[in-house]
Design a protein around this nucleic acid. Structure first.
Length: 288
DNA sequence: TATATTGTTACACC
DNA sequence: TGGTGTAACAATAT
């Protein structure tokens, strides 16, 4: 069995949902069930800073959600890490959407925010690796300073991508694509999927890529990410949308989590190896 | 009980 | 010194 952790498309899916329902909401109270989630603040200090604050908007940088608050001008930053969920129930009332199939990790609720309209945002996290921080502008700068380019921003052009690959010429492609200081937001799933779409093995040293391969990869990354966002992200186990519904991208996975299975494009078998300390999947026939 | 999971960082080595 | 690779760490399910 394998877990799917939130990467850029999953976090962006949640961002869009939360921005719609939380903008303008005022935090009335909260409850911390796991103090580690709001470290280094104590639960009471943490809540004191938040109560009475209005959520202006919900933004995203890399895999981090950023809720800007008024009037304090502080930012509530949330990283879901491996198994974090943000659940805001009852978003579908009156709609025709099917009820959730995936079970939210109610047993593992770590933090609850209550809003003045009576609604509730629940932060669940089975592994307790996720965190919530309250940031000043300076804190925010420090936190975000080291992050690389957003792969969906217009600034992520072919020249930039080339520079990124050239930065560490002897690294394996997988390592460079996972490096948040170079490209921000890609994780294990979408690196493997992008490499498959481009027909390039993740084991390749970046300096060995041809111009054609670089171009293919450069196009594959936003293509995969945008499709995944359109499908609401990838749900296999722990990730679900803030609506409680699963994302739909799992059906589109070509290599991730498919080690030993038949390649969907050729007759070959998907290989699973360990690379950069991570489970890595590729088709030896389709990827060179 | 050993192992697997991933994002992030710390550190050892050349 | 800086590029590179590995391991540790967070916590839990199986």
């Amino acid at each position: 069995m394998f877990n799917i952790m939130p990467e850029l498309p999953e976090v962006e899916t949640i961002r869009r949902e939360l921005d719609r329902v939380l903008s303008g909401q005022v935090i009335k109270s909260g409850k911390i069930f796991w103090p580690g989630a709001v470290k280094p603040l104590s639960p009471s200090t943490f809540l004191k800073k938040l109560v009475g604050q209005k959520v202006k908007k919900v933004e995203r940088r890399a895999k981090i959600l950023l809720l800007s608050l008024q009037p304090s001008e502080l930012t509530l930053a949330i990283h879901l890490k491996m198994t974090g969920q943000l659940i805001y129930p009852n978003q579908n009332q009156g709609s025709t959407l099917k009820p959730a199939k995936a079970e939210p990790l109610i047993k593992h609720t770590r933090v609850i925010f209550n809003f003045t309209d009576g609604s509730t945002l629940r932060f669940n996290d089975l592994r307790k690796f996720g965190w919530i921080k309250i940031l000043s502008d300076d804190d925010k700068k420090v936190l975000l300073a080291r992050l690389g380019r957003e792969p969906l921003s217009p600034k992520f052009n072919l020249e930039t991508f080339q520079t990124i690959l050239d930065r560490y010429p002897n690294r394996r492609l997988k390592h460079t694509l996972l490096d948040q200081t170079l490209i921000a937001g890609l994780g294990n799933i979408y690196v493997d999927e992008s490499c498959f779409m481009a027909g390039v093995r993740p084991t390749r040293r970046t300096k060995t890529l041809t111009q054609l391969e670089i171009t293919k990869l450069y196009r594959a990354i936003p293509k995969i990410l945008n499709l995944a966002i359109k499908k609401g992200g990838t749900s296999a186990r722990d990730y679900i949308r803030s609506t409680g519904q699963p994302g739909g991208f799992a059906a589109y996975l070509k290599v991730y989590g498919r080690g030993g299975k038949k390649c969907k494009r050729c007759a070959g078998v998907i290989k699973k190896i360990k690379l950069a300390g991570r489970g890595t999947h590729y088709c030896p026939k389709c990827q060179k």
